[in-house]
Design a protein around this nucleic acid. Structure first.
Length: 757
DNA sequence: AGCACGCCGACT
DNA sequence: GTCGGCGTGCTC
């Protein structure tokens, strides 16, 4: 990411609270003071209240706002309120169950608010565990002092029996008991003993050794790209560096894309790092946790009891008193970008945070994002490479199957089928990757041309056909819209002409599973996609069966690409990759390359030379050619050249204004007004610091799927070759957009650094 | 965003 | 006669 502007930070007052004696008196209680509070409301600005003496910046407060009560965070203690004194209400209750948030956390939130053009409160409050931002958690008899106090009390209770057993060597200290390391960890994980057996460390190969040494020599802020293919041992490098940082007494933040898909990683990190950080020294944070668990992990990290914080993007906003290292694993992964609310990139903010704290940050990937790779090439980031596979297994052989002159059998090329058959004979597993769930993408009437359109969206309804649970039983057939979730029964005949012979067009994973069953009657076939894993735990179950060798052929969507390595997987077939190659999105090739590398990497880790066949009608495409050579650098060179000549990121900076309304025209009208405003500003208005000469605004265009759930959408792309110019413009623009007349029946949002356009 | 207040249609 | 539609306006 480009030079960071820190302008937004100025909205934080760093001055200590003001001497109350010489100001417009807040009145009321003796020594009362004014506080300026951030609230989770979609309104720009902060809100002033009257608080008891001693209120501090960074402290939380329950305030009355309109007709409801909310939890806010004190950002300033101004000398006078910004509105008439009569309008200022009293704080309902200052909360002191936590120390005030530290300056660096407030600064991080302020930066994110400014960078992504959102109100400060909308950044800060959603970043906290749920109970800490609900006034209700502090009310009523049951609350007993709020969620933090309750949690601590529970931990103290749980620790009691242990304490009596060891009363000899530990004097009771009730103050300390609430937060002390041993008590909380005992409650969290009574099973895990602190006497872990010594872990035998894997031997590092030469390049791992070099990487660890280079990383150990770093002090202060430095972004490092750790580039290594699947199986090259990036995790071991993270671990060694993390261990070192822990020994220095500092905390480590490790971000992963999705924690549920990588339970092994969590196990490895726990085992290795708890040996240093102590039992309970590793906290795990992700959106799947219940409120209480999340609060507990967060508190442990905030209090410095947890020395390692392992988690998804939401962990980025956790205050860490002794942060010494940040690791972003799979840094290219799109799930680091939040797609609603504050649309932040946890990877980009992690880099900002590392700079702010003056600590190193490791970005790990086999297929880095073009942004990161570009920075590594220009020397802005340090590039460390792990070229070999650590386990000395041969990389999979990738072969392109030209589908232009081949007669496909149910969409499958003969060599692919032969490969599956061979692996079956050898008792090895096969994986067929098809990134399209359902039975067929559309149902079609040959007689009149009717297709299964969604009544609420401008999209096709997908045919789903679940095979019967018991042989001969009823299968579940239905049409489903993947955009809005609408479902209906499959019509027996064409709704338009009555033709009874409706045809499924194209192939999804369900149909593929069915075909493979017909082609390989003896084989054990399973499918992993969003449909087959809807039930909680069923994904784990299916992965376990695959690992146990109870599955011969696995059909899967991108869900199978992440995390899991299959020891006995000898063959990977890829279908329909071309669909992504020619997507409208300029980042599609980058995602396709990453995905194919990742899928290919699932196989052959244990030493079996694995094969990967990719069916394509365009084998000459540079992307596929680079893939066959396992040549990420070659692909990136080609992709970056294209980006540069087209003036696209990372050579330009973008923002996207999206509008939604019942009628497309309303959305378009809003965008037109938003655009027209920029023509009036033209740099002549000196109050707007925006340098319009460096800003390009494109025409508003409808989204490719215009209507979803009866809402029609359009968007307006803004581009600049200068990050500061774009930021300056967005700041001014975000200020006027809420006031535009056309906002009436329009919902809109502004996204900075959009991933998809 | 919530949550009110405020005027115009089909119902106990 | 009211319950309720969502239009508009405000929140320190």
């Amino acid at each position: 990411m480009a030079p960071w502007s820190v302008a937004g930070v100025s909205q934080l007052s760093t001055s200590p609270s003001v001497p109350v004696s010489l100001v417009p008196s807040p009145g009321g209680e003796e020594g009362a003071t004014w506080v300026r509070v951030a609230l989770d409301v979609p309104l720009a600005g902060l809100f002033d209240y009257r608080a008891p003496a001693g209120a501090r910046v960074g402290q939380r407060a329950i305030v009355s706002f309109g007709r409801r009560e909310m939890v806010g965070i004190v950002i300033e203690t101004p000398v006078a309120p910004a509105v008439a004194v009569e309008q200022v209400k009293d704080v309902v209750q200052m909360l002191d169950d936590l120390p005030p948030f530290p300056d660096d956390w407030l600064k991080l939130a302020a930066f994110a608010a400014d960078y992504y053009q959102r109100p400060l409160g909308e950044v800060m409050l959603p970043a906290l565990p749920g109970p800490l931002r609900k006034p209700a958690a502090y009310q009523g008899l049951r609350a007993a002092g709020g969620p933090v106090a309750r949690l601590d009390a529970r931990a103290a209770r749980a620790a009691k029996p242990k304490r009596t057993r060891r009363k000899k060597d530990q004097a009771p200290d009730d103050e300390r008991a609430l937060t002390s390391e041993e008590n909380v960890s005992a409650s969290e994980n009574a099973e895990a003993t602190s006497a872990l057996p010594p872990v035998s460390l894997p031997t590092l190969n030469a390049s791992q050794q070099e990487a660890v040494e280079a990383l150990s020599g770093l002090s202060g802020f430095k972004p490092v790209l750790l580039h290594g293919v699947t199986g090259s041992g990036k995790t071991e490098v993270y671990l060694r560096v993390a261990e070192r940082v822990l020994r220095e007494g500092r905390q480590v933040m490790l971000l992963v894309p999705e924690i549920n898909l990588t339970p092994q990683l969590e196990q490895v990190f726990r085992r290795r790092l708890e040996a240093i950080a102590g039992t309970g020294g590793v906290a795990v944070l992700h959106s799947g946790l219940a409120d209480g668990e999340r609060l507990q992990a967060w508190l442990r990290a905030v209090r410095g009891q947890a020395r390692v914080l392992l988690g998804t993007r939401l962990s980025l906003f956790t205050p860490l008193p002794d942060l010494g290292l940040i690791v972003v694993d799979e840094e290219h992964d799109p799930s680091y970008k939040q797609q609603e609310g504050l649309r932040y990139s946890a990877r980009d903010l992690a880099i900002w945070r590392a700079r702010d704290r003056g600590v190193p940050i490791i970005l790990g990937s086999a297929t880095p994002s073009m942004e990161t790779w570009h920075h590594a090439q220009t020397g802005r980031y340090l590039l460390l490479s792990l070229p070999q596979r650590a386990l000395a297994a041969e990389p999979p052989r990738i072969r392109l199957l030209d589908t232009r002159n081949v007669k496909l059998q149910q969409g499958l090329a003969p060599p692919l089928l032969q490969a599956v058959a061979q692996r079956l004979e050898k008792g090895e597993q096969s994986l067929i990757f098809l990134n399209r769930r359902g039975y067929a993408p559309v149902l079609h009437c040959d007689a009149c041309g009717w297709v299964s359109g969604c009544p609420r969206c401008s999209a096709y309804m997908v045919l789903h056909r679940q095979p019967p649970r018991v042989p001969g039983g009823p299968g579940r057939h239905e049409l489903r819209c993947h955009h809005c979730g609408w479902q209906q029964r499959v019509p027996m005949a064409c709704p338009d002409c009555g033709n009874q012979d409706l045809q499924p067009m194209g192939r999804g994973t369900q149909r593929l599973e069915e075909h493979l069953g017909e082609l390989f009657p003896g084989a054990r076939i399973a499918r992993i996609d969003a449909d087959s894993t809807r039930r909680k735990g069923s994904a784990q179950e299916l992965f376990a069966r695959m690992h146990a060798g109870d599955i011969d052929i696995l059909v899967g969507t991108q869900m199978v690409a992440k995390g899991h390595d299959f020891q006995n997987l000898g063959f990977v077939g890829v279908l329909n990759a071309d669909a992504m190659l020619f997507s409208h999105d300029f980042r599609a090739p980058e995602r396709l390359f990453a995905q194919l590398m990742q899928v290919a990497g699932r196989a052959g880790r244990a030493g079996t030379p694995a094969e990967v066949y990719i069916q394509t009608g365009y084998p000459e495409q540079p992307l596929y050619q680079a893939l066959v050579r396992h040549d990420y650098a070659g692909f990136a060179r080609y992709a970056l050249r294209e980006r540069e000549s087209a003036g696209l990121p990372p050579f330009a900076y973008q923002a996207l204004l999206t509008a939604e309304a019942r009628e497309l025209a309303q959305a378009q009208a809003f965008l037109a007004q938003a655009r027209a405003w920029t023509e009036r500003t033209d740099g002549t208005d000196s109050s707007q610091a925006a340098d319009m000469s460096r800003i390009t605004l494109y025409d508003p265009v409808p989204l490719r799927v215009v209507r979803v759930a009866n809402v029609e959408r359009a968007q307006l792309l803004v581009e600049s070759d200068s990050r500061p110019a774009l930021q300056g413009f967005l700041r001014a623009w975000a200020g006027v957009l809420p006031g535009l007349a056309a906002t009436a029946r329009v919902r809109w949002h502004l996204e900075v650094d959009p991933l998809e356009i």
